[in-house]
Amino acid sequence: MTISFRRPGYACTDHFLDVPLDHADPGGPTIRLYAREVVAPGRQDDDLPWLLYLQGGPGNKAPRPGASPAAWLGRALRDYRVLLLDQRGTGRSTPANRQTLPAAPADAAAYLRHFRADSIVRDAELLRRHLIGDRPWSVLGQSFGGFCTVTYLSLAPEGSARRSSPAGCRASPRARTSGTAPRTCASSPRTTATSRAIPATATSPPASPATSPNATNGSPPASASRPAGSRRSASASAPPAGSTTCTTCWRRRSSRAGRARRCRTRSSSPPARRCRTPRSRCTR
């Protein structure tokens, strides 16, 4: 079933499709999927490539054009016909809530096993074949949708021509050091840049005490050169331009706003209480 309508700046078509609750049992109970097709006005009849959007969460419905801000959507509509899928259990698809879940906890857990990323990917494949046949489409996943995008690579790589994940798709340490992370999330600039930069630092061994520059002359390390609770010396060198000093551990941290901010470095000892006496009168 399809319903077409207009929104300011968008031409929309709502799609509904019944899919199996358990894809391993196609003849069993079914649930209903909802997806909204969005295209730029005047391009409804153009042969545009498709872009499937998978929302994050899990448990969030897809954005509604015109009702929720989505800056990426306007850019995507220049080149794509976008499909906003309400994943099973969310939005206008068959919900998964206390009204639909079985009363017994064991039965509810068994029911919810059918709402994982693998089932979402199989739903998307049924929807793709229903709308465009054997043509592949591109997939954009946000947060949890990024994990669904990676699952797409495992279960149905032939169904997606391009995969992108702006957030939520992080490679494991094993994948980072082995160099497989850029291939897993090849279209994610953030993940690819991170996975390429980490092996250089993750594989280098830490400096031993015997080779440490501070250990050769018997001086304490820089982080221990100031006793806990001491106040910064007035003769200390001023921080360079564009950086500020943390009021807890005295580490210099760059700040765009030019204000001092607390350092996130964890310390084995609790931070010293900040002196509230004006600097001109303080004797500490």
Rank of each mutant, 00 (worst) to 15 (best):
Asp14Asn: 02
His15Val: 08
Phe16Thr: 09
Leu17Gly: 03
Asp18Pro: 00
Asp18Tyr: 03
Asp18His: 02
Leu21Cys: 00
Leu21Tyr: 00
Asp25Met: 03
Pro26Gly: 04
Gly27Leu: 06
Thr30Asn: 01
Leu33Gln: 03
Tyr34Trp: 15
Tyr34Ile: 01
Arg36Met: 15
Pro41Ala: 11
Trp50His: 11
Leu51Val: 09
Tyr53Gly: 02
Leu54Tyr: 11
Gly56Leu: 10
Gly57Pro: 05
Pro58Gly: 03
Pro58Asp: 09
Gly59Met: 06
Pro65Tyr: 07
Pro65Arg: 13
Ala67Val: 12
Ala76His: 08
Ala76Gly: 11
Leu77Lys: 04
Tyr80Arg: 10
Arg81Gly: 02
Val82Cys: 14
Leu83His: 07
Leu84Glu: 03
Asp86Gly: 04
Asp86Arg: 00
Gln87Asp: 12
Gln87Tyr: 10
Gln87Thr: 14
Arg88Lys: 11
Arg88Trp: 04
Gly89Gln: 04
Gly89Glu: 08
Thr90Val: 14
Ser93Met: 11
Thr94Cys: 02
Pro95Asn: 06
Ala96Asp: 06
Ala96Val: 14
Asn97Arg: 06
Asn97Pro: 09
Thr100Ser: 13
Thr100Leu: 01
Leu101Pro: 00
Pro102Met: 05
Pro102Asp: 01
Ala103Trp: 07
Ala104Glu: 15
Ala104Ser: 13
Pro105Val: 06
Ala108Ser: 11
Ala109Gln: 11
Tyr111Trp: 14
Ser119Cys: 07
Ile120Arg: 00
Val121Cys: 01
Asp123Gln: 04
Asp123Cys: 10
Asp123Pro: 07
Ala124Val: 14
Leu126Arg: 12
Leu126Gly: 08
Arg128Lys: 13
Arg128Ala: 09
His130Trp: 14
Ile132Val: 15
Gly133Trp: 12
Gly133Ser: 05
Gly133Gln: 05
Gly133Ala: 08
Asp134Asn: 11
Arg135Met: 14
Trp137Tyr: 13
Trp137Ile: 09
Trp137Thr: 01
